[in-house]
Amino acid sequence: MKQHCSSILNTLPPHRLMALDVMRGLTITAMILVNNPGSWSAMYWPLKHAEWHGWTPTDLIFPFFIFIVGMSITLSVDSMRAKGFNHAYILKMGAIRAVKLLALGWFLALFFYNFRDPTFSWIDDTLLQLRVLGVLQRIGLVYIVALCCYLYLTPQKIALTCISLLAVYAVAMLYLPYPLPNGDVVNGLWLHGNNLSAWIDNAVLGSHHVYYAKAQPLPFDPEGIFSTLPAIASALSGILAAVYLTKQTDLKKQARVFILTGVLAVIAGYLISPLTPINKALWTPSYVLLSSGLAIITYAFCSAILDIYKVRAWGAPFIVFGANAILFFMFAAILARLLIMIPVGDTSLKGLIYGSINTLITDNPLASFVFSLLFLAVSYGVMYGCYKKGIFWKV
């Protein structure tokens, strides 16, 4: 294992800072782990999302990734500027990337066929029920807006934009009235299926094209239209963190400032939570402050461990996952669907594998977690093979 990790670290440029690479790898690894349990009904609580208000470690994964997207925008744009590329070219490449992310999201939404149901119709049950928005779609939309902000706004204006997005979202959610199907007009609600963001999703996307299609009274999407605004703020917080990172070369001072900033952001999130409750599905302002604060603290600890004290071997596997984050996400999503789609007797291939594990391990949550680890191990084998061969899929 030590030799394996050393071989990965030896491929990195000698003076490369590892903190962002490893944090990206940790985040995408956690995302795949929680997305692929043996059974959704048998999971340890840290691997579940909060039922509605509040948060669990799982609720931090997606905003951490959005935060990292923001940091990566700063570093990649600075690199492209140094190579002489103008803003028009950078924006063109960014737009192409955003479109690719949207297309990949729709591909995953359509990549399913129920072979065990003779009445299943791919056109009626999948194509015409297409979920318009989703994880990759949100990343694409957030990425292109955040990229424009970094290209054309000063850091001070980016900070103001970040605050303004959170303020506008909070005020609208609290005070803008919206009609319910029964004719009542309400405002200021933060309920499942009953809030302004849900009303917008239902009105624009329709009940058949959102994740919570059966939510009452208003079907909605956790990666919905209006809640994308505060998600953009999450990316802008990552941009601002990376701006400071590029200007402050003293890593110890950098880590101290990040930890202090992160703690203040978390405190601020909790202070405003009575007005805007911490909620991932609504991506509330308190949730943005909490998650961005914890993200910047996490980066500071990664920086201290990996780049200041040079304890690096443990981070090597996450370098492999982080170097191909989108490929890893796509591979895992396709593999997960195939395991469900392939019929084996009266169950699926996933059912057969999980059933075999559950026979050996009778503790259901543990068996479910072992399935997740097995899924992750298979994924690592494929991603490591790509890493060794120099296959890096950049969307």
Rank of each mutant, 00 (worst) to 15 (best):
S79F: 05
S79M: 10
L47M: 14
N114Y: 09
I267C: 04
G183A: 09
I232N: 04
L133N: 04
L91T: 01
V34I: 15
I305T: 15
D346N: 14
N114K: 12
D78F: 11
A19T: 04
F226M: 15
W40E: 07
W52R: 03
F375A: 01
K252F: 07
A231K: 04
A304N: 08
V69N: 01
E223Y: 13
L282M: 12
Y44W: 14
P219R: 02
L294P: 10
I296R: 00
I96P: 01
T29S: 14
P46H: 08
V266N: 05
A231F: 04
G269S: 12
L151N: 06
F318H: 00
K247Q: 14
G94T: 06
I225S: 02
R16Y: 13
I28D: 02
D307W: 07
L338H: 02
L196D: 06
F107Y: 06
M23L: 14
Y270R: 01
L271P: 01
V210F: 08
M71R: 00
W190I: 12
A146I: 11
C386S: 09
F375W: 03
S79G: 10
S41Y: 13
N364E: 15
M1S: 12
N86Y: 11
L133K: 03
S348M: 08
L176Q: 09
D59Q: 11
E223A: 06
K253A: 10
C162W: 11
W283G: 00
R97P: 07
V370Q: 02
S79D: 12
R256M: 14
A215V: 12
G390C: 03
G105T: 07
F369P: 01
S234W: 08
F62C: 01
W52I: 08
L166A: 11
N182K: 05
D363K: 04
F120K: 04
Y212G: 06
L360Y: 13
D221M: 07
A323C: 12
G193A: 04
